[in-house]
């Protein structure tokens, strides 16, 4: 029983790792641009397909491909900022609809390029860390957990210790005051989109060998990410990480012991409950980012 619980905990840790990368990116974009990026799940999917194209098909080294995935998806984020979110900055509903349009475009392009079938990415390593008889952690999953730790710590350092990070947080809190201080909010929003998208991309890339990849995986990712950012308090990065861990654990436990649909229902109910009781989220404050 304890072993099963431990194993479930490890599985949850893995799910929390990539979910928190996606959710933190979503929060960052919302904080700076005030727009909900519906296509964020598709950025995760795009990251996974970079791995399919370059690692599975072209046999390039895995970690190089992950880095390419990070940069490529980050650039896609910049494209989104320039073509949609910046022109629509005074129209949040318009930004939402445009991101839905973008989601359809990316999905269709991937389907045209790779087909609708599931892709299988061979794992880089078959090694498994055996903790005990029934508690095992495949090293491939450990990669996902480690890269989430690295990316999130890097982001934290960037936001708290660098000038750009200060500027970013300032314009998330009060764009006008930030502009008065001579901060270019435009540069900030481009950087935020790059980072936000790149985090989703790197999550998709590094998780590609352990999840089943299809052009529609973005859907379940974005639903989980929505739950997480609401429960964590929209605008709170720390909250998003904590909520990712909480949600992933609850979801994995219920999936293991009951079934997947019930786990989804519980997750959504949790979100609804948070919205009813404390709309700023469990860990949220008034500040954004």
């Amino acid at each position: 029983m304890i072993e099963l619980l431990l194993q479930t905990g490890l599985n949850a840790l893995f799910a929390a790792a990539y979910l928190s990368l996606v959710a933190v990116g979503l929060v960052l974009i919302f904080g700076v641009m005030g727009v909900i990026n519906f296509a964020h799940g598709e950025l995760f999917m795009l990251g996974a397909y970079v791995v399919v194209a370059l690692y599975t098909n072209l046999q390039m080294p895995f970690f190089l491909v992950v880095a390419i995935g990070l940069i490529f998806v980050g650039l896609v984020g910049i494209v989104m900022e320039m073509t949609m979110f910046h022109p629509l900055r005074d129209n949040p509903l318009g930004g939402l609809v445009a991101s839905i349009g973008f989601l359809m475009v990316i999905q269709a392009l991937i389907i045209l390029g790779f087909g609708v079938r599931m892709e299988h990415v061979p794992p880089v390593t078959q090694d498994v860390i055996v903790i005990s008889e029934k508690v095992r952690l495949p090293v491939q999953r450990l990669f996902v957990i480690l890269s989430a730790l690295v990316c999130l710590s890097a982001l934290w350092l960037f936001l708290k210790r660098t000038k750009f990070g200060w500027a970013l947080r300032a314009s998330a809190q009060d764009p006008e005051a930030a502009m008065l201080q001579g901060i270019s909010t435009r540069t900030v929003s481009i950087i935020a989109l790059f980072i936000g998208a790149a985090l989703a991309g790197v999550a998709g890339s590094v998780a590609a060998p352990v999840i089943s990849i299809s052009p529609v995986i973005g859907h379940s990712v974005i639903v989980s990410a929505f739950i997480v950012i609401i429960v964590g308090g929209i605008g709170s990065l720390e909250g998003a990480v904590l909520a990712s861990a909480t949600y992933a654990f609850i979801h994995t436990v219920i999936t293991t012991f009951v079934d997947g649909v019930i786990a989804d229902i519980v997750g959504l109910s949790l979100m609804l409950m948070v919205l009813i009781i404390k709309p700023t989220g469990m860990f949220g404050t008034q500040d954004r980012v």
Partner: peptide, 12 residues
């Protein structure tokens, strides 16, 4: 693909 592009264009 076309539907999505039209959606983006129409809100823009």
């Amino acid at each position: 693909l076309v539907y999505g592009l039209i959606l983006i264009a129409s809100v823009l």
